[in-house]
Design a binder for these strands. Structure first.
Lengths: 216, 216
DNA sequence: ATGTTTCCACCTAGGTGAAAACTT
DNA sequence: AAGTTTTCACCTAGGTGGAAACAT
């Protein structure tokens, strides 16, 4: 259709903090989920190329279970083992990046981070957090949706509240998957290497930095 | 034109924190402006009624000088006195509310606050702050711009980056002025009653609360 | 003299992992 | 036993007015 950027454009997305993600992925990334909602660390940070500078795009993310298995962490082998299956969960929510919709211009100007996204295990959550089950493996997906030119007013960028994207026209949606962003959900860290890497890299996380002593 | 809400709709905007603004206005509201940019306190908090729930609106604010006078504060009479005129300043910037554009539904659901707006005296500011001159009197104006239905995707709300609205079609713009929001710009408070009221009401401002002693 | 800038102690607001309490 | 929730000390991030330094 006219006014809609199409897949055939040379659009590409790069995971900016790829190295950090891979460091976690080597060990086995764990994400804490809580009732109140917890950020992901690392967060997904993207670089865009090849967008039409004047077309509007909506950027969204969802997180799909990679299988129906429940996993448990086996300490002596430092591995996650499948431990039974669970029933199918409710359809995943979609988190719309708060800068959406924005012109290609805006998306390409600087790296875009999903740092406000929160994960929860509370099925009743009404704050737009993504609802996941603990002790399961998940794979985030990025969706870029082309939605034509914004009419009439030349406002540079647009930011949506948290919302859903349902019934999208598939031809205008590009989906990107970064395998290094897969993770296992937990309510408390299982692998101490993960804990240490989070403490080392997340500015908000300062555990027992010096010794093996507690704060008290 | 079709799809555009019109002035004839029974649209109204209420200043939610009217009482606080009037308390300041009685004394003579002062707003600190800095090079780096400073928030307004109070901030402008609005309630919307009568919008078309499914039409999109952009909400914006600008701040106009009320005259060409420069003012100085006369301590012994606790009054602002005109003290010479200044040349015409550059055309005022417009600050677009970061939730813009959003559907009438979203604007009406809860009070909308311009709490991210910052004022500066730096003419070279490139962060979208509103540029004002110190020791002048100003009047904020609210602009509500109807821009039709957002096409194709049913995203609930949109938030723009800081930007300008130029060349708007006047028929679709409603402008609201709250006289109690007028203020004088300063780089340091002149009237100590203003200082005290800010300290009392602004949660971020904690001056010498107990006595007349300094922190040191 | 008068107005501005810089720096800072003091706040609010909220993101962390650890530990203890709780649940099943 | 295994997993979840709650609480909390410790952080980052950033909004205040005061005081001193600076500028004109």
């Amino acid at each position: 259709p006219p006014n809609i950027a199409h897949k055939s454009d040379q659009i590409s997305i790069d995971l900016v903090n790829k190295e950090l993600w891979r460091k976690f992925h080597e060990i086995g990334t764990e994400m804490i989920i809580t009732k109140a909602g917890r950020r992901m660390f690392p967060s997904i940070k993207l670089n865009f190329k090849g967008l039409d500078p004047t077309s509007m795009y909506i950027l969204a993310i969802d997180i799909l279970p990679v299988d129906n298995n429940r996993y448990r962490y086996v300490y002596h082998s430092s591995q996650w083992m499948a431990a039974g299956t669970t029933e199918a969960s409710t359809p995943p929510r979609t988190y719309v990046h708060p800068d959406s919709p924005a012109s290609g211009d805006v998306w390409m100007k600087q790296p875009i981070t999903f740092d406000k996204l929160k994960l929860t295990n509370n099925e009743q959550n009404n704050k737009g957090h993504l609802i996941l089950h603990s002790m399961h493996k998940y794979q985030p997906r990025i969706h870029l949706i082309s939605c034509g030119k914004f009419p009439k007013y030349d406002v540079i960028s647009y930011v949506p509240a948290v919302g859903r994207i349902d019934d999208v026209i598939r031809d205008d949606v590009m989906t990107f998957v970064f395998p290094e962003c897969a993770f296992t959900t937990v309510t408390a860290y299982q692998n101490q290497q993960i804990t240490q890497l989070k403490i080392d890299r997340n500015p908000f996380a300062k555990g027992f930095r010096d010794s093996n002593k507690s704060w008290k």
